[in-house]
């Protein structure tokens, strides 16, 4: 698999690519950790969302939506495909499948997946159905994720 042979991009390289692909965003790299904030409007009729990417020194990304408040938009409903309803951390890929590995470029993977997630979120707000596909983990795996 090419993915495993590809060299792991450094935090600096990941950051440079984020800036290149999303010139409107802002962020920094510190001790190998990346913080990146950018605006997302998944369709021309969509809201403009502020997203934040936090990548730890081992290259593992977490993506959050900072505004608008998705909880307020969804009322009392539980938002699908979130690791955390309060922190609004998005589930964007299936772990262990190679969809995401630390050798992949953040700007080409989790960043566009965030756009997709938000489009399906807006659709879900109206239809109450998640049309983006995906997998919900079994309960015990959910716990593991919380522990991690």
């Amino acid at each position: 698999m090419g993915a495993y042979l590809a060299p792991k991009p450094s935090a600096q390289r990941q950051y440079a690519l984020l800036k290149l692909r999303n010139p409107g965003g802002t962020g920094h790299v510190q001790n190998g950790r990346i913080t990146w904030r950018w605006s997302v409007q998944p369709t021309p009729v969509s809201r403009v969302y502020q997203a934040r990417l936090a990548c730890d020194s081992r290259g593992r990304p977490e993506i959050f939506i900072e505004s608008p408040n998705l909880g307020l938009l969804s009322g009392s409903r539980r938002i699908p495909h979130l690791y955390d309803q309060d922190k609004v951390r998005l589930c964007l890929y299936l772990p262990g499948t190679g969809e995401w590995t630390t050798s992949k470029v953040l700007a080409d993977t989790v960043v566009p997946w965030t756009s997709l997630w938000l489009l399906f979120f807006e659709e879900w707000l109206w239809s109450d159905e998640w049309k983006g596909g995906g997998i919900h983990p079994p309960i015990d795996e959910r716990k593991k994720e919380d522990i991690k």
């Binding site: 997203a51 495909h81 998005l90 566009p112 596909g133 983990p137």
Partner: peptide, 28 residues
């Protein structure tokens, strides 16, 4: 599927830059 300025989702009008890779929305 490609993303453009501002995270806009669509299809490429000209030569596609790089298509959004496949993903599976995971999590509850």
């Amino acid at each position: 599927v490609v993303t453009g300025a501002g995270g806009l989702i669509g299809t490429a009008l000209a030569q596609p830059a790089s298509a959004v890779p496949k993903n599976t929305f995971y999590g509850e």
